[in-house]
Design a binder for these strands. Structure first.
Length: 981
RNA sequence: GGGCGUAUAGCUCAGUGGUAGAGCACUACAUUGACAUUGUAGGGGUCGGGAGUUCAACUCUCUCUACGCCCA
């Protein structure tokens, strides 16, 4: 079957992908081969393939295909992430569109709906990964909510709890009032927004005798108030102190006195604390421990326990009554500062507080000057404010005091830091190590509980405290029991409450309990109710490198063979979210708490971080900017192979990639070039090679190209070992196009296209040898290119071996071929000869071009006698490639001629009456100038005593030989010029 | 405020202690011959500014400028 004239990527891609998958080619059985393992960063099950996935997965597929070709037992683990918040949001949005809402359902029913949605719509991204050609092990596709994954997550939670590495704590969390859940520090992004800076007078409270209190005041004039400044006036309803810097003399005599807060009338102390910045505002700052992270710490230092701290917001960030009951009724229920859903139609707490203080005469107005120099009075000074936003919900985060589960990240981070320091985990590019250390060294407790429904439920049950455990009269705090399942918690509880397991009654949630409590027969039993929260999605994905392999099942075979993984490829944007946490959890759990050495516990040997794919103008792609490039569109237009090659070629370490369609197009052209080369080969009787090692060859061109394959292979292997995808792609690109297509195929045309009937036995055998070599080289190209361009290489692999009927004679697919092993030496003589042909041909073409001689013109050449043997042997090649008409040898005849200096020898092309002598003089003159200048520079360097004395001997030698060469060339050009008169 | 990165041809980017490369774009030429998704030849850069180390700096060090990112 002949190769089609047109290369149509779409026509072959689907065909081969289906074939590979049905043949189980992505994971051939190789029980005795060494393992090579990559786990794929699980995309969100809600997701669809974006350009970043295309990059990330292309790089992984290149490595997996490469190692598979090299005979490894290559495993690329694939699966999707349940993506708690993201997925729940998607399903809720869908419900809202249908006029429905989550709160219409019981938790279990809602979760059923999410599963249903997952079954229907969750396959999008996995289908798209297939289109990109990714050779993942779909037979073991994973999902982070699979039962075995839940087992792993639960075990990790319970074990960490038992090791005191997970604990429950009451502290401020980042609360997302839209999603109504706590989120971790990493999920908060700081944005700069335009805000205001208000200044208020807080009146000093009267002393115990009811006498007014004053202090000197900053200006020493005496005042009965202290000035505070704030960007969040509404939180003054929960102020618990005013802080001044301990060294701030302006306020020294007021520390220890009290303020009587306006509106609430609460008496709060003035405290000294380093947090107060004397330079900012008045130097005195209001302290709201319940709604500001800094204030929380100040509050603790001032002696407030977290449980005492005032919390003035509900989960929606609407004002609620605080524990001392001092907030006036008209504030209750108001939103903190903005009604997202009602466009500010209703008055907000912030607005009302400012209004009230203004009416009380306690607002210090801001005075500024307008352009005309007139004074303008306003309530507040405009300021740029660093404001925390939830990365998913997109609303301002409210620091909120709640009980949550925390992972002791600091302890877990230690060995993970060591692993990188000691080189047990290599981060590529190395510059990211500093970022990693910086974050890990300062890591904060990780809040892992989320107030969502979709996710891994926290394996915790709450039971009553026993009477003797009550810390105070109204203590109704419950105790928690942590266990892997209900049976285990029942037994734990039986022990704890000194009863039998049958007397422990377990409820899945408060609602069930309330219903059940109405039934009086349960009154005598001990009741446990399960924690409602689920875990942060990243808590489960941190287990990906081993939970996907079967852990915690005992002696899971995949774990022992494929853990540690060899390589992890991820975007740097999830270094903290995912990579660092995998390192921590991997080392902790696979190291069995320090029992196993780091070589066995680290999740991967190498962590490769790539950059972002940006829009053509360098901007970050985002839906809101509308500059998102769809990788599937690019695949439709140029083919998956071209897109993949683009990704590889652009991936140099440590730089973002700017999208460039033209370049993708260029690689489509490259694929077409290869296609046509194969077509040419096929039409000239060249077909698939029968041997893995290079055929024996006698002709220079053949010996040369075999050596070039060898060199290319060495360069390519080195590039891939170094994870230099750009270098690897460029190596195979240039070999294919510049060496193989541009020179080798041109050089062999006269050999293989000779008239078979008329040719001698020698010519027939030369042609046969050449066909063998050409077929072999093309095979090597296909295999070396396969990791980058899997589809076209598979197609041509078979096409080159197919009979008339279209049946491929290959007994295996290229995806399972063997990586090249030419076992050939680089042939110096052949290389010298072909390099000479190339140099001569290029010189000839260049000269013709400059002298305006038609490129096709066949010219007579007079070579020096020394070249007689070589030129005679290459006569037919030179006729065709360099377009020489006839050759003779010896000295230059009289008359005008074009002269080429190639490799230190002058070749004369007599052109009496044809060439423009002045033009030829100019051409040679220019060449002479250039060479002479280089020779001059070398001469100058060598005449420098310091250079000769101090430079490395090789450098001096190189300079000497370069000088000799350049001088000789200059000499010859000079002679040539003189000959023209 | 702390940290990191980037600055090389018109554009997008490689690069090495011994005086610069690729792709695209551009110019000229070619075209019945695997390939116009082509071929051949060519023009184009004082490697962001300044200082230092060195026989030698685009490359190493310092500094300045501009841009970008992360953390607080």
């Amino acid at each position: 079957m002949t190769i089609d004239k047109n290369f149509d990527p779409a026509a072959i891609e689907t065909k081969w992908y289906k074939h590979w998958e049905s043949e189980n080619s992505f994971r051939p059985e190789r029980p005795d081969a060494p393992a090579y393992t990559i786990v794929n960063p699980p995309p969100n099950v809600t997701g669809s393939l974006h350009i970043g996935h295309a990059l990330d997965n292309t790089l992984q597929d290149i490595m997996i295909r490469y190692e598979r070709l090299r005979g490894k037992d290559a495993l690329w683990v694939v699966g999707t992430d349940h993506a708690g918040i993201a997925t729940q949001m998607v399903v809720e949005r869908k419900m809202e569109a249908a006029g429905d809402r989550r709160s219409n359902y019981r938790r279990e029913d809602f979760i059923k709906k999410v599963w249903q949605w997952k079954e229907e719509s969750g396959g999008t991204i996995t289908r798209q990964l297939r289109r990109l050609g990714c050779s993942m092990d779909w037979s073991r596709e994973q999902f982070t909510m699979d039962p075995h994954f839940t087992q792993a997550v639960t075990k990790v939670f319970v074990d960490l709890y038992n090791k005191d590495l997970i604990y429950r704590d009451k502290r401020l969390v980042n609360w997302d009032p839209k999603l109504k859940t706590a989120i971790s520090d990493l999920e908060v992004e700081t944005r700069e927004i335009n805000g205001n800076f208000w200044r208020f007078k807080y009146p000093l409270a009267a002393d115990e005798n009811g006498n007014a209190v004053t202090f000197n005041g900053p200006d020493g004039a005496g005042q009965d108030y202290i000035e505070v400044a704030t960007t969040r006036p509404e939180t003054m309803l929960a102020d618990m102190a005013v802080a001044v810097h301990p060294d701030d003399e302006r306020y020294a005599d007021v520390v220890g006195k009290y303020v009587q807060l306006p509106i609430t009338g609460r008496h709060i102390p003035i405290v000294a604390d380093d947090h107060a910045d004397p330079e900012l505002g008045s130097g005195a700052v209001k302290i709201t421990p319940g709604h500001d992270f800094n204030d929380f710490d100040v509050g603790k230092r001032a002696g407030f326990a977290p449980a005492e701290m005032l919390n003035m917001f509900d989960g929606d960030a609407n004002v609620c009554q605080v524990s001392d009951g001092l907030i006036p009724d008209e504030y209750i229920g108001l939103h903190r500062f903005k009604r997202e859903t009602e466009n500010g139609a209703k008055i907000q707490a912030r607005e009302l507080v400012v209004k009230a203080l203004k009416e009380l005469g306690l607002l210090i107005p801001h005075i500024s000057k307008n352009k005309k120099g007139e004074e303008v009075i306003s309530d507040a000074e405009p300021r740029i404010i660093q404001t925390p936003y939830g990365d998913r919900g997109g609303v301002v985060i409210e620091p909120w005091l709640t009980d949550q589960w925390y992972v002791d990240a600091q302890t877990l981070a230690k060995p993970a830091i060591e692993a990188v320091k000691n080189g047990d985990i290599e981060i590529v590019p190395k510059t990211w190590e500093k970022t990693y250390f910086n974050w890990m060294d300062n890591i904060q407790p990780w809040c892992v509980s989320r107030q969502l429904w979709w996710g891994h439920r926290v394996p915790v049950w709450y039971g009553p405290k026993l009477e003797h455990e009550f810390e105070h009269e109204h203590d109704c705090e419950q105790v928690h029991l942590v266990a892997k399942d209900e049976d285990e918690v029942r037994n734990l509880a039986a022990v704890r409450y000194s009863t039998t397991p049958e007397n422990i009654l377990i409820f899945n949630n408060e609602e069930e309990r309330t219903t059940a409590e109405l039934q009086s027969q349960n009154m005598l039993k001990t009741i446990l109710v399960r924690d409602n929260d689920v875990l942060d999605t990243w808590f489960s994905s941190a287990l990906w490198p081993f939970a996907t392999l079967g852990w915690p099942e005992k002696n899971a075979p995949l774990v022992s063979k494929h853990y540690p993984n060899d390589l992890l490829i991820s975007g740097f944007d999830i270094l903290f979210f995912w990579d660092a946490r995998m390192a921590m959890q991997g080392i902790e759990f696979m190291g069995e708490g320090g029992k196993k050495p780091i070589e066995q516990s680290r999740p991967w040997k190498t962590l490769y971080l790539h950059g972002l794919v940006r829009a053509a103008d360098g901007q970050k792609m985002s839906k809101s900017k509308g500059n998102v490039v769809d990788p599937l569109g690019l695949i439709d237009e140029y083919g998956a192979d071209a897109l993949r090659f683009f990704m590889a070629a652009m991936e140099s370490q440590g730089r973002d990639i700017k999208m460039d369609d033209e370049r993708v197009k260029g690689y489509r052209n490259f694929a077409t070039k290869l296609w046509n080369a194969a077509r040419f080969a096929q039409s000239n009787g060249i077909s698939a090679s029968q041997s893995l090692s290079a055929p024996t060859a006698s002709l220079a061109a053949n010996r040369w190209i075999i050596g070039e394959v060898q060199e290319t292979l060495i360069t390519l292997d080195k590039a891939l070992a170094d994870l230099r995808f750009d270098a690897a792609a460029n190596t195979i690109y240039h070999f294919t196009w510049d060496r193989f297509c541009d020179w080798y195929l041109e050089l062999i045309k006269p050999i293989i296209q000779g008239d078979a009937e008329a040719s001698s036995a020698q010519m027939r055998s030369d042609a046969e040898e050449t066909r063998q070599v050409a077929g072999w080289v093309l095979d090597q190209i296909l295999v070396m290119l396969h990791p980058f361009m899997p589809f076209i290489t598979e197609e041509l692999w078979h096409a080159m071996a197919s009979s008339e009927s279209g049946k491929s004679a290959r007994n295996y697919d290229i995806i399972l071929a063997k990586w090249p092993a030419p076992k050939a030496q680089i042939d110096g003589d052949a290389k010298a000869e072909i390099d000479w042909i190339i140099a001569f041909t290029s010189a000839m073409r260049s000269a013709k071009n400059e002298l305006g001689i038609a490129p096709g013109a066949k010219l007579e050449c007079i070579f020096p006698n020394a070249l007689q043997g070589r030129v005679n042997a290459l006569q037919s090649t030179l006729e065709r490639v360099a377009r020489i008409a006839s050759s003779s040898f010896g000295d230059a005849p009289d008359g005008a001629s074009m002269q080429l200096v190639v490799d230190g020898q002058t070749i004369i092309i007599p052109l009496e009456g044809v060439i423009d002598i002045e033009a030829e003089k100019a051409r040679l003159g220019k060449a002479y100038e250039a060479v002479n200048k280089e020779a001059g520079a070398l001469k100058g360097r060598l005449s420098n005593e310091n250079f000769v004395a101090r430079a490395k001997p090789e450098a001096v030698e190189k300079a000497k030989s370069d000088l000799a060469e350049k001088s000789s060339e200059a000499e010859r050009l000079k002679t040539a010029l003189e000959r023209l008169g």
